[in-house]
Amino acid sequence: MTTSSSERGVSLGMPELPAPAYPDDVRTRLEADAREIIARYPGSRSALLPLLHLVQSQEGHVTRTGMQFCADMLGLTTAEVTAVATFYTMYRRRPSGDYQVGVCTNTLCAVMGGDAIFETLQEHLGVGNGETTDDGKVTLEHIECNAACDFAPVVMVNWEFFDNQTPSSAKRLVDDLRAGRPVSPTRGAPLCTFKETARILAGFPDERDGAVGASGSAGHASLMGLRLARGETAPARVVHPRDGGPHDEPRNREVHDPSPAEHLSSHDAPQDTSASDPANPAAGPAAEEGE
């Protein structure tokens, strides 16, 4: 998904106008949620991270409108809120897909095949890191270690675990997501959208029946030691969960020759700052700037 120069906030002329407010009904609803969040903490500012998750659950990313809302609720300046919103990687700064597909490319997963999976998905979807498919369904990115190394290589979709992936299982996964077929993680609940996930992160429990218990008590790797301690023999190395194993991996890979794009943990260049969602009924900055 491309963004216009104004969305990226690179306009060099007029200083930006204040962000538009949420429509009244949205604001009323979010204010009630925000008050509930703030009440959890002895100091109100502690509510800022959950509030940013909350505004992300409204628009799918953190907009200037959302940051203004957080600032209003907490008595902070928008500069203070922006400083926090831009520090943490889970806050998205531009419109993105319903499903965030994150491929772990930290060392262990990368070596075990995460690099190949990420490369395959980029080709298969025709998008680069942080980009969204044209249908608005999938945003692809590489992620850092997600504490599931015994299930490597790992892919996260909306922060649910898809363990022991291969390039072919990952391709099928994103195809299913784009086709609207139901998808269940190895560990976690049947997928909800990114916005719904953000609401859980804001501290509002997932009320769907069976969501908490979905996928059972523990993954197979978590039980390895317990089974051995009970005198059971080591179970065979199991399950590529979605397909029983890789099928169409590339056969003769070239000798490793890293290109700049391959340096996966290197998105240390400054990221774009956010703009309000143009689809927001309250007009975004594009309108303000008369484009």
């Binding site: 262990l108 075990m112 299930f151 490597a152 978590s222 390895m224 030691g225 080591a234």
Partner: peptide
């Protein structure tokens, strides 16, 4: 974890 036959948790 890694290139082992039985990755997992061992208490």
């Amino acid at each position: 974890s890694g290139h082992v036959a039985g990755p997992g948790q061992y208490e």
